[in-house]
Design a protein around this nucleic acid. Structure first.
Lengths: 146, 146
DNA sequence: CTCGTTTTCTTGACTCGTTCCAGAAAACGT
DNA sequence: ACGTTTTCTGGAACGAGTCAAGAAAACGAG
């Protein structure tokens, strides 16, 4: 079965702390959350947690690959616990809403650049840009009416 | 032949100003420059130009597709005049150096997500991450020796 | 070519997301 | 239970980029 946050932290050699457990648990239920949203969710569960702690947990867990950080241009970073498979994302230009997209061509579609120009490539990141359902028509509340 | 900056601005319905010409010309010779680098280059040519003007020119020209803005996660935005073809980029995780990568599978390889989830997709952005030649070995100057 | 309108540039304050810092507090190994 | 190590708190700070008000240029009609 899927290991819980406690086990994951242990296996990664990280100490088990309330903020870490809360972040991981909350993130498992709310993928693609921003740091702010994570902080809010965690506080709702633990009472008070510093912004710093949240960033620290997120960064530490990113480093050991327990969470993946995605940074869509022009939007604050978002985090998810689905790691390992190199899936891609569909991001709304307007509200930043993000959804997972499985790799189109199976395993590694565009994973190899034709010419690496002396680079060592270790990841191919694919982002699809567009407008989500809610943002497609909404000239409504674009400007408040006089 | 390739139209010069002056013609491009005209066609786009934008006024022809010294800062704009200088930015476009400089960018044509220095693709993937950051806003700072553009400002520096333009100042070298025109004397004094406000940071604001540079951002304004870059944003305005982005809007009319005269320049493309790329924003690699964790690095300041970079700009290029090669627009229209949806080519991709290879970015150095460490120094941010960016090089163009032509689309591997011809026209639109991964352009269509398998499931759009109600989104209207208008662009597929592919970024290859790695280390450039200069950043692969350089544990040298990582820490200054005592 | 001059004038008036419109767009662009300058200067400087400011925001946002994120990190840095020092000290207090918790977690782990013995 | 204790000391060491790592993590958390609170607050200051940072970099990239934007906002706002007025001065200065560019266009185009007369």
């Amino acid at each position: 079965m899927t290991p819980g946050p406690r086990e994951l932290l242990g296996e990664a050699g990280l100490r088990i702390t309330a903020p870490r457990l809360a972040v991981l648990e909350w993130l498992a239920d709310h993928p693609h959350a921003t740091a702010d949203q994570v902080a809010e969710g965690v506080r709702r569960r633990l009472g008070t947690v510093s912004t710093q702690a949240v960033y620290d947990v997120l960064n530490t867990c990113s480093r050991v690959k327990l969470v993946r950080r995605i940074e869509p241009a022009g939007h604050p970073a978002r985090f998810e616990t689905r790691t390992g498979d190199n899936h891609h994302h569909l991001v709304c230009r307007r509200c930043g809403r993000t959804v997972d997209v499985d790799c189109v061509h199976g395993a590694a579609p565009c994973l190899e650049p034709s010419d690496a120009a002396g680079f060592t490539v270790d990841e191919a990141e694919v982002t699809f840009w567009g407008l989500c359902g809610d943002c497609q028509v909404p000239r409504q509340d674009e400007e408040l009416p006089a």
